[in-house]
């Protein structure tokens, strides 16, 4: 943990910062996977993490909602604050953090239950609905946000696993937004999908930006360029460059970034 003076020194004094990370290091047993990374995630914006495989972008993403806690050998140091509150502090319940920072995974992973049960699971465990009607309302709203409502409204009690790959992923997004998170983390959400489904998801991300800050890890530079306002480039565990998406793609300051986006490394 960094002490407060260093923290203040490094803190960008911007009001619209949702999550700010300072001096984050991650170790898998003896492997140093993330090396001293500083990032500010801004509110109501899409931030994308790009970089070659194994550069640590997914690992870093998982730090933001403490999913790395579930891996025994993984150790995280450094300071990550959400709205100024240290998320790794002892008094923070990781479970509540994850309700505020939702996550969508690489492979669509709906529960082998009905569509309705998939979406209502989060609200149920967080006690968000008092009545069945309220729950129905949440489910409908979330499915609409996930741009899935029209396709599934007649078969809410059909199994979620019966949907197509793209629909499953949108179901997972609807499921994640049902808990009313403030930040939505997406770990390569389109890598298992075909181009049409990918386009639908990208469209959805743009809409989600109205209500959430979205952080997306992607392999596709085109996708990063299309959907995000800010981009971070990771390489070998280092954050090489972070800035406005347009600037990163048109006028990178670091030579490694340039090599990557022009396809010479990665």
């Amino acid at each position: 943990m960094l002490d407060n003076t260093i923290y203040n020194e490094r803190l960008d004094t911007m009001n619209d910062v949702k999550i700010s990370a300072r001096g984050v290091n991650v170790f898998y047993a003896d492997t140093h996977a993330i090396k001293d990374v500083d990032v500010d995630i801004k509110d109501k914006m899409v931030t994308s993490f790009i970089g070659p495989s194994g550069c640590g972008k997914s690992t870093f993403l998982r730090c933001l909602n403490r999913m790395n806690d579930t891996i025994d050998i993984c150790r995280v140091t450094g300071d990550i604050r959400m709205d100024g509150q240290d998320i790794n502090a002892k008094e923070v319940d990781p479970v509540q953090l994850r309700a505020k920072v939702g996550m969508v995974f690489q492979k669509p992973n709906p529960f082998p239950k009905s569509i309705y049960d998939n979406v209502s699971y989060g609200p149920r465990i967080h006690g968000m609905a008092r009545t069945k009607a309220e729950m129905d309302e949440i489910v409908e709203k979330s499915l609409r946000r996930g741009a899935l409502w029209d396709e599934v409204k007649d078969r809410l009690h059909a199994p979620g696993t019966g949907l197509s790959g793209g629909q499953q992923q949108r179901l997972c997004i609807a499921r994640a937004v049902a808990t009313e998170p403030q930040v939505l983390l997406m770990d390569e959400p389109c890598s298992a999908l075909d181009p049409i489904a990918t386009a639908q998801i990208e469209e959805l991300i743009e809409e989600l930006r109205q209500n959430f800050s979205v952080v997306i890890v992607t392999h596709s530079m085109q996708q990063a360029a299309r959907v995000s306002q800010r981009t971070a480039f990771f390489h070998l565990g280092n954050l090489v460059e972070y800035g406005e998406t347009g600037q990163i793609f048109t006028n990178p300051t670091d030579s490694r970034t340039e090599s990557y986006i022009t396809g010479r490394i990665g």
């Binding site: 319940d93 509540q96 465990i125 967080h126 006690g127 968000m128 008092r130």
Partner: peptide
Amino acid sequence: QGDTRRLHSLP
């Protein structure tokens, strides 16, 4: 006052 959202855990 019956508002479960304000509870840390389910009742």
